[in-house]
Amino acid sequence: MTRLKRAIALRETGPALAAFYLAILLVAVIAPQVLTQTDPMAIAPRAAFAPPSLHHLFGTDESGRDILTRLIYGARQSLLLGVSAIALALLIATTLALIGGLGGRMAERGIRWLIDVMFAFPVLVLALLCSATLGSGIVPLVIAVGIGSAAGYTRLVFGQVLAVRDAPYVEAARALGHSPFKIIRRHILPNAVRPLVVLATMGVGQMVVWSASLSFLGLGAPPPAAEWGTMLSMGRDYIAEAWWMTLFPGLAIVLTMLATTVVGRAIQLRMDAGAS
């Protein structure tokens, strides 16, 4: 019985914990200095590779910088990157999906074909193109990750638009002689976009992960930025000696992804309840 109770309690605490984590994250984004007094950029070579201790809760990195402090200061850039990239991806996805779904047979075929091409085109090549033409920095990274992950989202949204387009209520609206514009605005957009809210919240973490993998390849955010993905990829070489350099930034990313997923699902439930 106690186990069952615990399970129920867990179910309720899940979203609460997620919201709490996201709240802390928000504080870190807006005013990191509230959470820590240390300077995220100040190097201290003699204190390099210190394991977690009371003084450095998450240990220090290869330049003796406090990892917890850098995680807190890195939240802004990492989340900004994640949010902008997912926004770009969804913008592309929605535009293409609406064109393909409502632009007639040719457009539908064209978009199907485009999705196939986009899937075949590696993000790495896009990242190269962006970094070579736009220089190094966050903007090329956002563009590369945003465009690179657009294929998957386009496919999802496109499917949604097609399903809504052929749904009875839309056919009914059409039969009633409503203008296409009105149909899009009143029926298709709301129904096709609703899942996007959930996708967007879950996608933020995914985008941070993607940018981290570009950091691995030496195309990430420029130093000394405390971007989580860059921190994680720098830790890789020292995994045998300093596991904390890899573990904690990774945890920050995973927790962010989990928290946004949990909150995203809560939003979804509420929206579903509101819709029915």
Binding site: I43, S63, P223
Partner: peptide, 29 residues
């Protein structure tokens, strides 16, 4: 460029900053 050398230049970036240099490390292929 190897990670350790990158970090070395990140530290150069930090110490040079103390003297008033803004060092930009620009990653590219």
């Amino acid at each position: 460029w190897p990670t350790a050398d990158r970090t070395l230049w990140e530290q150069v970036q930090a110490t040079a900053r103390a003297t008033g240099f803004q060092v930009l490390l620009e990653n590219s292929d």
